[in-house]
Design a protein around this nucleic acid. Structure first.
Lengths: 218, 218
DNA sequence: TGACATGTCAAACGGTTGTTTGAAATAAAA
DNA sequence: TTTTATTTCAAACAACCGTTTGACATGTCA
């Protein structure tokens, strides 16, 4: 397996397999034996190619971030001069697509969720490289609703109200399927979900905007 | 330590300590050695009193549910004839209190979050005994906003939009503190948070109600 | 071809895990 | 007190973990 294409196809295979296994069991409970077995590699392969288990893990998380960032950009499907509502809807929809992505990098949601429970250095990398830019962009969009004079606390609160509705479906899936087993999340359902969250949020944002200007008058 | 009050104070001590350790490390990564050491008990105490590690865990989760359910009821502080808005605000506020509770049972949030990542039988117990009744109650309240003719899908979507904004602060704390380190969550901040989420949600609910009746006309 | 770097492999290492064991200690009952 | 049941204890158990080792295979370059 030395020269399949280029050198070290084992390394690539290990990264893909490790993403699955880490997502399934978490960093500590995932075993190098299972990763290597599923990847068709020897037990010593991880130590040879990555040094140790932890180095492999951080490499996996990095990779997952990079690929997901590009696949569904938050401006997906936007026209040239989008309205604030269109921007918000694109942000929500692309976010949902990233969460419900079942592709080979669909492990990203679970990996991040695990970082939320047992943070490692990988979380700081994720925040710096992916979350922070996303958050900044969203708050820009929100400022278009609240007006330039809105205070930062208000913008932050509204931003969290928006993302929370999306993240809910990444963080609470086991709860949702137990409460409402009949719910399915196919492409059409995800579109409707995006519509609902957008409409719900736009109403909340307009209310916040009105309340803020009312507060400024008095 | 046999007869401190009644029999087997060791058993109680083990339950309390185990809740902490399980919350900190999760079921698999928590070690019986650490639990016993912190509880001042012998290594064999868990097997003697509970059979095995897993039986102790399910007992811990059960206990956490029971106590949290009573401490902050979702109708907290409501007058005799509350308005729908008051009901919603009480639901949100009590929910936040449960999440930000730092008391001896403050591990509940982390335990449930861990169940969300690695579900065990304890999650089914939690849904049946705590989550389902809460969800039913919330959907009743929401129906007061949407009207009795609102369809179930709409009520469910709105319900999830509401709870998600609260759960966000249980599931994404590590993210929030990294993004906005300056944010503090003291009693006053929690009240303001409840006000924001309630106002944001009421606006969203009114929008959903208006959209639904508009849809019924055409 | 021969020398050398690169990967692969089975086996073994030391360490940690949950659980078991049988004896010792303690409390309750006779 | 003696007897009996309950609880504690240190030690050991087998199973599993990540990692290391040294031999072996393979591709490259002289």
């Amino acid at each position: 397996m030395v020269t399949e294409d280029g050198r070290a196809a084992t390394r690539e295979q290990l990264l893909d397999t490790a993403a699955e296994v880490f997502a399934e069991h978490g960093f500590r409970n995932a075993t190098v034996r299972e990763i290597c077995q599923r990847a068709g590699a020897n037990i010593a392969a991880i130590n040879y190619h990555f040094g140790d288990k932890e180095a492999l893990y951080t490499e996996v998380v990095r990779r997952c971030m990079r690929t997901a960032r590009d696949k569904y950009p938050p401006t997906i499907g936007l026209p040239k001069r989008p309205t604030p509502g269109q921007k918000l809807r694109a942000f929500v929809y692309s976010f949902l697509l990233r969460i419900f992505d079942a592709g080979p990098n669909g492990m990203r949601g679970r990996l991040i969720l695990r970082e939320m429970v047992d943070p490692t250095d990988a979380l700081d990398v994720a925040v710096a490289e992916e979350v922070r830019p996303m958050a900044d962009y969203l708050m820009e969009v929100i400022r278009e609703f609240l007006g330039p004079r809105a205070d930062e606390d208000q913008v932050r609160l509204c931003g969290m109200s928006v993302v929370s509705q999306v993240l809910f479906y990444n963080h609470c899936r086991p709860m949702v399927v137990r409460l409402f087993p009949e719910l399915k999340f196919d492409a059409k359902a995800i579109e409707e979900l995006a519509d609902h969250i957008t409409a719900f949020s736009v109403a909340g944002l307009k209310q916040a905007s009105a309340a803020a200007s009312r507060r400024r008058k008095s």
